[in-house]
């Protein structure tokens, strides 16, 4: 089992650092490139949500990411230091294609196996837990052979 814990300030520039750090970790662990794409997109969406809505872009508040990998599963936790409200999360319906926001949850749900929201016992903010099947693409490739 492998584990990494990362913490970022709630500024837009952090997204770049987060992207590079998480991708480097996943590549080092030998995760399939297509699955890395799924994971990066999902974490990116949760990270943006934590930055803009959870921490409301307050640079004094942090975003905490932890990723655990084993042979079967990859789990990512994204935690902010906001109010811990989770009621508004989970809605993935786009009513108007011309709206500029609101697609993040839809993408997370499509890219992952499971997503859950809770109030973090560590920060009191919102915790988004996303799980991925490590062998998702390996299984698909075997089915195609």
């Amino acid at each position: 089992m492998s584990f990494i814990k990362l913490t970022y300030s709630s500024v837009i520039k952090s997204e770049q650092y987060m992207y590079d750090d998480v991708k480097t970790f996943l590549v080092d662990k030998g995760i399939d490139a297509m699955l890395i794409g799924n994971i990066m997109l999902s974490i990116s969406e949760a990270f943006t949500n934590a930055l803009l809505h959870g921490n409301q872009s307050d640079p004094n508040k942090s975003i905490h990411i932890s990723i655990t990998t084993n042979n079967d599963e990859i789990t990512a936790d994204i935690i902010d230091e906001g109010s811990g409200a989770v009621e508004h999360l989970g809605n993935d319906e786009i009513v108007d294609l011309w709206q500029e926001g609101g697609r993040g949850m839809m993408l997370i749900k499509r890219m992952s196996r499971e997503v859950a929201f809770s109030k973090s016992i560590i920060t009191g903010g919102t915790q988004v837990t996303i799980k991925f099947d490590r062998n998702k693409y390996k299984q698909k490739m075997e089915q195609n052979i």
């Binding site: 992207y19 990116s44 294609l97 926001g101 697609r103």
Partner: peptide
């Protein structure tokens, strides 16, 4: 290489 919902939002904005 990568686009997320924030990038898509920018795309919709420029389309409009």
């Amino acid at each position: 290489e990568f686009v997320n919902s924030s990038g898509l939002g920018a795309m919709v904005s420029i389309m409009k």
